[in-house]
Design a protein around this nucleic acid. Structure first.
Lengths: 342, 342
DNA sequence: ACTATGTGCCGAAACGTTTTGTCAAAAGGT
DNA sequence: ACCTTTTGACAAAACGTTTCGGCACATAGT
């Protein structure tokens, strides 16, 4: 890189002051000790010389690089996860920090090396991100660094984390169906044992109970979290004589399968069956016909929350650990209407 | 961050040698000047002290941070673009570099500030990435820095760039239809004036000509690059009496529309009409039924190519600029078969 | 007039490395 | 035995900042 040939010393010489004065003037240090006039002169000569500070040098002196690490397992596989990265990056940017991105590919050995690398570069803190909501064990190497987990929880109460409020999301989704008058509502869910599965089921049950609808476990159909799994789960429910009029699907990808299942069963969406998804995976949700009503995952917000938190953690007076469950919005499109026959 | 309390000086003291010897020993500097025995002793004491070098200090001295910048416009909007980032990151990692990620959001003022920020942090070079293949003007601020464009071309012959080989991709897509015996092949394309539009059309024509199929401009139907646009374009072609037996779609999202168009027109895929997409947008391509045969965009490879190139550019003897057009693979799924009636 | 108290600025010491030049001792050549 | 080279190591000078302590000088207080 064409190095900033002009350093603080050049500015000092040109302005006829000492190096320390330049530093103090440019940084607007609090115990001011420099006249307004000098400060102005320094500022303008710095400007005209095209001076740009060298953050490496400053970092060395201040023992803080101004850089945070973002460590994720499989960043590339999960399309919406980028929003998490973006949320973090923008929050960091507005605090004058940079973010270096690393993908561990889920390999613990690699992860360990990458943490080392980040530490050698003197990052001020690390965002440790999961690509889906789960419980993780914090790598030992991260113990001695300010760290915030994104889309993941951990046992250690002393570490901060942020996850989606799955329960509220599911309540919102089912609530939308209830609000349209649905009483028989199926849940096409994921069979994996992850927090989202358990919590969305809880939200589904809560919304049902709140609406005074009696429990019916046969309305819950679990399968693999794929389009295919969604197809099967939905098909099983829609082929019943007392088929549900509304379907809440664990994910948009599963909802995509539910759409096909409805079509194959000769049912129109939303007239014969209303469908709500989860994730707001844009390409899918708007690409489907009709557009899919779904619950957005607060990826951007989680990234931003975690980044802000991390910055606080690296301040002189770090606050105690905090944990957040962030709500995602319900995105209304055209896949929900009132149930048939009234 | 819990600073590396132990520095090179501590190692020197513990090993009973001078600081410079430690540096030389640990870095395995070429004009060796240090006995094997001493080197080993230094290495082991460094190890046992848990010494980790401070890259900030080294960077300051060597005038090179070991960090590259990745500057993109709207990283979050384009799901598959992450692979580009990943490709770059992994290539950089294997060369011992870190990558800081910045999203400009398409705002030139912000972009300019971000470039400044990167330069202050003494990044060794910058990857300037577009989220779709296009021609860009290089920001002035980037003129004085080693830079490689990713998924973008520019006028200046002196700057390196890498883009997908759209022409070859389209030829592969259409060739797949030809190979299955199709002779009437429609092209549902994008109406936007971007390189991909022009080049994929060229590839379509080339494949057609190569198969000895006479030109028929009415088989090309352009529309907005959305599911809706794909629906319209495909519908227009499929409603003709002499409807094509195969459809090449500009993108997977448009192909998603074509799928619906075929269904609405009472045609089965692939028995009545074969469809090929472009992009290999996973959620869509595997979520569709049947699975969509499509051409992959070489995002990962472009990121990796650009990163390797950038590293070379920052070497003592930088090579001249180079430009690459990378091919994407054809991904075969189930949406293509032989044409009906023979 | 003489001490206290600010003010405005500066010199020099960090921060943790790499790198250059030097030097003593050992080895090798005649 | 003497000169030359090689070897192994080191001291010190960078790299570009921030920051601490202090020094003049002015202002104010008695």
């Amino acid at each position: 890189m064409a190095r900033s040939r002009v350093g603080i010393a050049d500015v000092a010489a040109a302005a006829g002051v000492s190096i320390s004065t330049v530093s103090v003037a440019l940084n607007g240090v609090e115990g001011a000790r420099v006249s307004a006039e000098t400060r102005e002169r320094v500022r303008s000569t710095a400007e005209s010389l095209g001076y740009t500070p060298n953050r490496l040098a400053r970092g060395l002196r201040q023992r803080s690089s101004g850089i945070m690490g973002f460590l994720g397992e499989n960043v590339a596989t999960t399309p919406y996860a980028v929003r998490m990265i973006l949320g973090a990056q923008e929050a960091l940017r507005s605090a004058g920090r940079l973010m270096v991105l690393m993908d561990t590919g889920g390999d613990p050995a690699l992860e360990s090396r990458e943490i080392m690398s980040l530490r050698q570069h003197q990052v001020d803190g690390i965002l440790y991100a999961s690509m889906f909501h789960r419980r993780v064990r914090l790598p030992d190497r991260l113990r001695e660094v300010p760290v915030v987990l994104v889309d993941a929880e951990t046992e250690d109460e002393a570490v901060s984390w942020v996850v989606p409020d799955e329960d509220a999301g599911a309540r919102a989704a089912v609530g939308e169906l209830v609000a349209h008058g649905h009483r028989r509502i199926g849940f096409v869910t994921n069979e994996d044992d992850i927090p989202a599965t358990r919590l969305r089921l809880r939200g589904y049950e809560a919304a049902r109970a709140a609406a005074g609808i009696p429990a019916d476990p046969t309305l819950v159909s679990a399968g693999p979290p794929s389009t295919e799994g969604g197809y099967r789960g939905a098909r099983a429910l829609l082929d019943r004589v007392d088929r549900p009029t509304g379907l809440f699907c664990f994910s948009d990808v599963m909802a995509m399968g539910a759409f096909r299942a409805a079509t194959d069963a000769g049912l129109r969406i939303p007239d014969d069956v209303s469908i709500v998804g989860y994730d707001n995976l844009r390409e899918v949700a708007v690409g489907l016909f009709p557009g899919l009503t779904t619950v957005e995952l607060p990826h951007y917000e989680m990234g931003a929350w975690a980044a802000r938190r991390l910055i606080e953690l690296t301040s002189p007076m770090p606050p105690p650990a905090a944990h957040a469950r962030l709500r995602g919005r319900l995105i209304r499109r055209e896949s929900v209407t009132t149930p048939p026959h009234g």
